[in-house]
Simulated scan of single mutants.
Amino acid sequence: MTGPRIALFAEGGDWHAARLGESFAARGAALVRLSLDRAMLATGTETGVELPGFDDGLPDAVLVKTVAAGSFEAITLRLGILHALRDLGVPVWNDARAIERCVDKAATSFHLARAGLPTPATWTTEDREAACRIVARECGQGPLVLKPLFGSQGRGLLLVERPEDLPPPEATGGVHYLQRLVRSPAGLFEDYRLFVVAGRVVAAMARRGATWITNVKQGGEPLPFTPDARMTRLAVAAAGAVGADYCGVDLIRDEAGRALVLEVNSMPAWAGLQSVTPVDIAAAIADGLLAALPQRRQLAAAGG
C-alpha cells in the first residue's frame, strides 16, 4: 500500500515548498506541487474537480502555501476549488473559509473580537468621510494605523494622526482599514509571531524593529522567544477563531504588558522564524496534517 499523496498549492521554486517536500517524503508521503490556476472545476467528471497529477482520483489531503494574485474572477474560482475539495471530504490545510477570514484583515478582526479575544480596536469603511470622522474622533487617544485590507509582510502601512494623513481612496482600493496603534512597553518596537499547527504552538519568535514596523521583510530582526502560557493560549484561540489548521499569529504587548492579537496569517512564511528556532517547522506541519488524516476521513464519512 502506497503512502498518502498530498497536493501542495504553491508558486514557483519556493524554499518553503522544498522543505515541506522533504518533510513529507521522510514520513512516507508524496507531495505533489501544483498551482491553483491549473486546477479545474469539471462537473462532467466523477468528482467535479480535476487536479494535474491526480488523474486517478483526489489527493488524500491538500496543503495551501500560496494563492497567487489574480483577477477577482480568478481568485473566486481558486477559492471555489478549495471549497469543493473540502466538500468532497478532502482535508484542506487551510481551507477556503480560513483563508478568506485571514486574507481580509477586517474579517480577521471581526472574528477575533467575536471570540472575545483581546485585539486592538479597528474600523473598516469604504466611506472616506466616515474614515476622516473616525480619525478625528479617535486620534485624541493616540495614532491609528492604516493597513491595506489584503496586505502582508508590513507593506503599505501608514501611521495616521489626523484626517489629512489619509491617502486618496485609489491608494487603498477604496477601503480604509484603521487599527489602533499599540505601543509596546518601555518604548520598544517589538511584537511576536507564534506558529500554530493543529491547535498547538510549535515555535515562536520576537520581532524587533528600529521603527514601529517590525516585519522581518521590512528590516525587523527575528529573535528567539519563548511565549508564556497566556500568549500560547491566545495564539491557539486566535487560530480557532478563524478556523485555521496552521497559521502564524501576531501578538503584541501594550504599555501595561497585556498581550493582544494583531493578525492571523493563514499562509505564513517561516524562513525568519526558522532561523531562530531549533524546531523543524516544515516537519511540524507534515506531522500535524498526516496525524489528522484518519480523523478527517471519519468526520467526512459521518457527514461532519
Rank of each mutant, 00 (worst) to 15 (best):
I75L: 14
G154S: 11
L82K: 02
D55E: 15
A269D: 13
A237T: 03
A74W: 07
A204G: 09
G257I: 04
A256I: 08
V201K: 01
V92N: 02
L112K: 03
Y177V: 05
I134G: 03
K147E: 01
G116N: 09
A98V: 01
G142Q: 11
R78W: 14
A203M: 09
D104W: 01
A98K: 00
N94Y: 05
P268F: 00
G80C: 10
D228W: 07
H176G: 04
M267K: 09
G199R: 03
V261E: 08
E170K: 13
P227Q: 13
G173C: 08
L77N: 13
T66L: 05
L36Q: 05
A203I: 06
V92L: 05
R155T: 10
E126F: 06
A74T: 10
F72V: 10
A241Y: 01
H111T: 02
P52N: 08
R5A: 11
T211C: 05
L159A: 14
L31T: 07
F189W: 13
N265H: 06
P120L: 06
V279I: 10
R128S: 08
A107V: 05
A186Y: 12
L77Q: 12
A136T: 10
D60N: 11
G44T: 13
G240W: 01
L158N: 09
L34A: 14
A61V: 02
K105E: 00
T108C: 14
G209D: 08
V216W: 05
I99P: 00
D191C: 10
L251F: 02
A30F: 05
A239S: 15
K147W: 00
A107R: 15
L178G: 11
P4I: 07
R297P: 03
P4V: 08
R101D: 00
L181D: 01
A96N: 00
G12H: 11
L58Y: 09
L159P: 05
A25W: 11
L234D: 00
A84Y: 01
Y192P: 09
D254W: 08
P169M: 05
L188I: 06
V103T: 13
A239M: 03
S35G: 15
N265R: 04
G288Q: 01
L8W: 01
G89T: 07
Q153N: 07
F9K: 00
G116T: 11
L181S: 06
W270V: 01
E50Y: 06
L63W: 03
Q274N: 12
G21R: 01
L88E: 11
I281V: 13
V216A: 11
L181P: 02
A106F: 03
T43A: 12
L34M: 13
L188P: 06
A210N: 13
V32C: 13
G53C: 07
I213W: 03
P224I: 05
A107W: 02
V49S: 02
P268L: 00
V103R: 15
L289G: 00
L51Q: 06
V216E: 09
L188C: 12
Y177C: 08
A238D: 09
M205C: 13
Q218H: 11
A96K: 00
G304M: 12
A302E: 13
P167S: 12
Q153R: 15
Y192M: 09
G303M: 08
L51Y: 04
R258F: 05
V236E: 15
R253V: 03
R137K: 12
A84R: 15
G80A: 09
D287W: 04
A237V: 03
F189V: 02
G173S: 09
W270Y: 15
A130M: 15
